[in-house]
């Protein structure tokens, strides 16, 4: 027995600086400009909605989380809360936003066993629940008002009660206008974000900036948004070229929740494929479904359902695109047969 202990451990021996909290908080940081833009466009209502959904998410994580509250600080719960808030209309009642956050966290994530175990993106699951539960409130869009400080709707509706709605405050989103009135919206306001829509979905510019930052730090798989954009652009472009009454590719890319969904939700590390080929297939599927739902479906927007549907297929995509170890494969089967 010697005094000096020789520590022998199994590989890997190289430690990366990135751990879960680092990545998660850098995603939160990259969302800051998006949140800022949303407050700029929609006033204090935007911040209130985001805070309410965060509160719902964090409260559930605190009391039902697997590690007894420690997971509060790894940033993943905050991302869910902020992303959910960003997909809601600015005038959304706060109690509904809170409920959506709590539902998404409990049934999108914790019920599967917490971070890393969930099948569906918890923020989108929360939104899907809200969409199904409160179809009127979640499609009530407010038009920008003169007074920046005024609320964009009845945010402070009493819990369980309907929001009261003043006349003349509602307007349609660019996608709704396109679908039901065949009115197109200029690309520039869409890109900048000064159109009506969900809190954080309107500004293409800031979402793209955040996405580029994350891709540069290798915290998101650029193949997923790239393949979504490519699919949507090619499909929408082809259809637009064939029949002018359908919206053009730039409109499709910049409107609705496509940007936010493609950059921040489809790329969720837990619910997207692990292989590069799988990422391309995943992105293609989302883009295809988005175009189909938007052009021919009953709803003006289909990003949420597209991503949730493709989330469900991720295990199969992973299995189908699993790389073979070099030297195995068909030959091994022959060897086994003989």
């Amino acid at each position: 027995m010697t005094d000096k202990a020789l520590h022998v451990t199994a590989s890997p021996h190289i430690r990366a600086a990135d751990d879960t909290p680092t990545i998660m908080w850098s995603v939160v940081m990259s969302l800051a400009p998006v949140v800022g833009a949303s407050i700029y466009f929609f006033g204090p209502s935007a911040l209130l909605v985001i805070l309410a959904s965060c509160a719902g998410v964090l409260l559930v994580e605190r009391f039902f989380g697997t590690s007894g509250g420690k997971s509060l600080f790894d940033g993943s719960a905050v991302i869910t809360g902020v992303l959910l808030g960003l997909t809601l209309p600015p005038g959304f009642p706060l109690w509904m936003a809170f409920l959506g956050g709590a539902f998404g966290m409990a049934f999108g994530k914790l019920i599967f066993g917490g971070l890393g175990q969930n099948i569906f993106n918890p923020a989108l699951l929360g939104r899907a629940f809200l969409q199904a539960a409160f179809p009127v409130a979640i499609t009530t869009w407010t038009v920008p008002t003169e007074n920046w400080l005024s609320l964009r709707g009845d945010n402070f509706a009493f819990p369980l009660m309907s929001p009261s709605l003043a006349d003349g405050m509602t307007g349609a989103t660019p996608l709704g206008l396109m679908k039901f009135e065949q009115i197109s919206t200029e690309i520039l306001p869409l890109f900048w974000g000064s159109t009506s829509g969900s809190v954080g979905e309107t500004s293409t510019l800031f979402i793209l900036l955040g996405g580029i930052y994350l891709a540069a730090r290798n915290h998101l798989n650029w193949r997923i948004p790239a393949s979504i954009f490519l699919t949507v652009a090619v499909m929408a472009g082809g259809i637009h070229f064939y029949d002018n009454s359908y919206p053009g590719p730039l409109f499709m890319l910049c409107s609705g929740g496509l940007m936010l969904g493609a950059v921040y939700m489809a790329t969720d590390m837990v619910t997207s494929p692990v292989t590069n080929l799988g990422s391309w297939i995943f992105g293609f599927g989302i883009g295809f479904l988005v175009v189909v739902i938007r052009l021919w479906g009953g709803l003006p927007e289909g990003v949420m359902y597209s991503i949730l549907l493709m989330n469900a297929l991720v295990p199969f995509i992973n299995r189908a695109t699993q790389p073979r170890v070099f030297g195995t494969g068909t030959q091994r089967q022959e060897g086994a047969a003989s």
């Binding site: 199904a132 539960a133 409130a137 509706a157 369980l160 929001p163």
Partner: peptide
Amino acid sequence: LFGPSYEPWVVMILPA
């Protein structure tokens, strides 16, 4: 039960 301004959770009476 909750008066006329209750906001129904539509999803609950749907199959989901």
